[in-house]
Design a binder for these strands. Structure first.
Lengths: 213, 213
DNA sequence: TCTCCTTTGTGAACTGTGTTCATTTAATAA
DNA sequence: TTATTAAATGAACACAGTTCACAAAGGAGA
């Protein structure tokens, strides 16, 4: 059935060049960074990309698909941002506490500098009813793995299962503090407040693990 | 200027009885519990309340105002739910760890039993750009106060400022774990997983505080 | 070169939702 | 009863997602 003659190809109007999709995606990404989810209107995106509404739908399915794709990119950047922060810090692997705090600071920085994209990530994943899509979970695991690796030399966390659970629990805790503190207008210095609270929880956890070895 | 003659009053069609507003609010609340934010359409709410769209706007301003009001109620119920859980547990005030875990379990239970309302609370507050409204912050402080009180007898947390920061940090951590774990389909028993992670973080924090006294 | 023919791109039109406001309704005062 | 006034109503408007009949753009065959 798929054995159609190949000599007749490229009939009819040629499809949009592949790079057009990339350009449109980049345009939509810029819009998201500037205006958050508010900017993600079919017509706005089309205008920004220099395409018709119909083409946006041809290229991306629907607007939610497009947002998912942009969020995917944001999440990749997020993970990469953490990896680079860890590398730049150049701390000895034995400095577990310091390295976890480097990751936490990287998180806070990302939220600060990429606020609109980060909010889109949160808001949209929450909007969906069911489970997160597969590729999303993949990047998430990738990020957890980073924390697990950092915890590896920690005294008291030699057990792999315990270390993994610790990484998940700690990282969720860090996330919680960031989510609660950073957008809260009642703190005059939200970043310092968040970092302080993270320090308290992470510090206690690592000390306690070493203690109860 | 306010000294208008009072003998001419109640002219024209009488306004909707005050109880009508309460009934409409209750109807909208039921709708929210059933269908989440998806159900919060002007026409759906109006039909459910047996009123016209216009009346909904007269009574509540706009739909966002109405949702804010419902979220306010949810948040009150949330705080009350925690108070009652603490009371029912009837633990001695010295059992700090146990009492914090009672609060955490209460949180998890609320999310489970009142899922739609809880999600509305999260999603909507995140949707708003600026700071949370005043009354909202009030209930939040009320809830933090509960945690602060529970932490009061904890060894190592005698200092008031430290205790308050600990309460905020710990509660945000608990929130983070719940937000990350409970809706995650990859755990076969999300509630147990969440409670386990919370136990780890809370336990470590309290032990460490006692240790480094 | 000039028609067909096919495939893609376009944007007007349709649907659903928030919001308003001219009109209708229901009450009191005279 | 009638005039007057305020409230309730829902048709109409604005705006956003989505579709699809039609126009545009190229290749194939004459």
């Amino acid at each position: 059935m798929t054995d159609v003659q190949d000599k007749h190809r490229a009939r009819g109007r040629p499809a949009l060049a592949p790079e057009v999709r990339d350009q449109a995606l980049a345009a939509a990404g810029a819009l998201l960074a500037e205006q958050g989810l508010n900017g993600m209107k079919a017509r706005t995106i089309a205008a920004r990309a220099g395409l018709s509404v119909g083409s946006i739908y041809k290229l991306f399915g629907d607007i939610d698909d497009l947002i998912r794709e942009l969020n995917m990119i944001t999440y990749r950047d997020f993970a990469e941002h953490h990896r680079q922060a860890l590398e730049r810090a150049g701390l000895d692997r034995s400095k577990v506490h310091g390295r976890v705090m480097v990751l936490a600071k990287a998180y806070v920085d990302f939220v600060t500098t990429e606020n609109a994209r980060w909010r889109a990530l949160l808001a949209f994943n929450r909007r969906q009813g069911g489970a997160a899509p597969q590729y999303y979970t993949d990047v998430e695991d990738e990020l957890f793995q980073l924390v697990i690796d950092v915890l590896e030399p920690a005294p008291g966390l030699e057990d792999v299962a315990l270390r993994e659970t610790s990484a998940r629990a700690l990282w969720a805790a860090v996330h919680g503090i960031i989510v609660v503190v950073l957008p809260n207008a009642s703190y005059d210095n939200p970043v310092a407040t968040a970092m302080n609270q993270i320090e308290m929880v992470v510090g206690a956890y690592i000390r306690d693990a070493a203690q109860s070895r």
